[in-house]
Design a protein around this nucleic acid. Sequence first.
DNA 1: AACATGGTCAACCGCTAGTTA
DNA 2: ATAACTAGCGGTTGACCATGT
Length: 242
Amino acid sequence: MGRAPCCEKMGMKRGPWTPEEDQILINYIHLYGHSNWRALPKHAGLLRCGKSCRLRWINYLRPDIKRGNFTPQEEQTIINLHEVLGNRWSAIAAKLPGRTDNEIKNVWHTHLKKRLNKNQNSGGDTKDINETTHEDKESLTVDTTSLQQSSDSITTFDITNNNKDDIMSYEDITALVDESFWSDVVSVDNEKNIEDWEGLIDINSKLNSYNNSKLYNDDMEFWFDILTSSRRIEAFSDIPEF
DNA sequence: AACATGGTCAACCGCTAGTTA
DNA sequence: ATAACTAGCGGTTGACCATGT
C-alpha cells in the first residue's frame, strides 16, 4: 500500500491553527462540505495538509463539539467502555456525543488511568483489561448511562456470575458498543442466541488462534469471545498468559 | 522572583483498512 | 490481482500553563 506524501515536504504550514485559518476552514466546509480532505486545503486556500484540516475540524471546529470538563457520568462511561473496548478511542467516542477520540484519549491518560491505578493500589476493583484476572472477567459491569442521550435512566448490564443462568445475550453486548464496530468483528448470526454457540467455543483453541494471529487478528473479537464464553467456562485459570 | 517540575491538550506521526483505477 | 491513493485511528510529542520549592 502506498503512502500519501508528507505535508511538510509540500511546504505546508504546521503547528497551532490561527483563528483566521479556523474561519477559512469553517466557511469552506459550510459551503462545500468535506468530501475530499486532501483537496480541501488547496481549494480553501489553506497552507495545511488535508490530514491537519481533518483533525482540526473533527477535534475542534465541528459545531457539535462539546467543550469543557467531563462530567462524572462521562468519566465513568469512559472507564467502563475502556474496560470492554480497550484503547479503541473512536469506538468510545462514538458513545459520548460531542466528545472526540483525541479528547477522550487525553482524559484517559491524564486523569482516569491515574485514578484507576490509585484505586488499584488502594484495593480498588477496577483494573486494566490486559491485567484482568479470572475474577475480573466474571464481573465486568458496564454502565451505559451516557449511551442513552434522551433518557435520564441508567441502564446497567451486569455480566457477573451472580446469576449464572442469566446468559448475556448477543443483543445485550451489542447494545454496549457501536453496531458498526461489532458487525465488523463478529461473524456470528445475529439471530442466534449466545447459547446456540455454546460448545463451539473452546477457549484454548481460540487462544491458540489468537496467538497465531490468523483468526483473531482483532483484539475485540478475541475479547468478545472471552466475555461471552467466560460465562460458561469454569476453568478460566487454564488460560495461558500472553 | 526565579527556577524546576508536572499536568494538560492540540497537533503531529506512522500505520492500517478501505476504495479506486 | 495489484498498486496507488485517501481516510481514519491510536500513539506520541511538545508547547504552554499552573503549582511547588
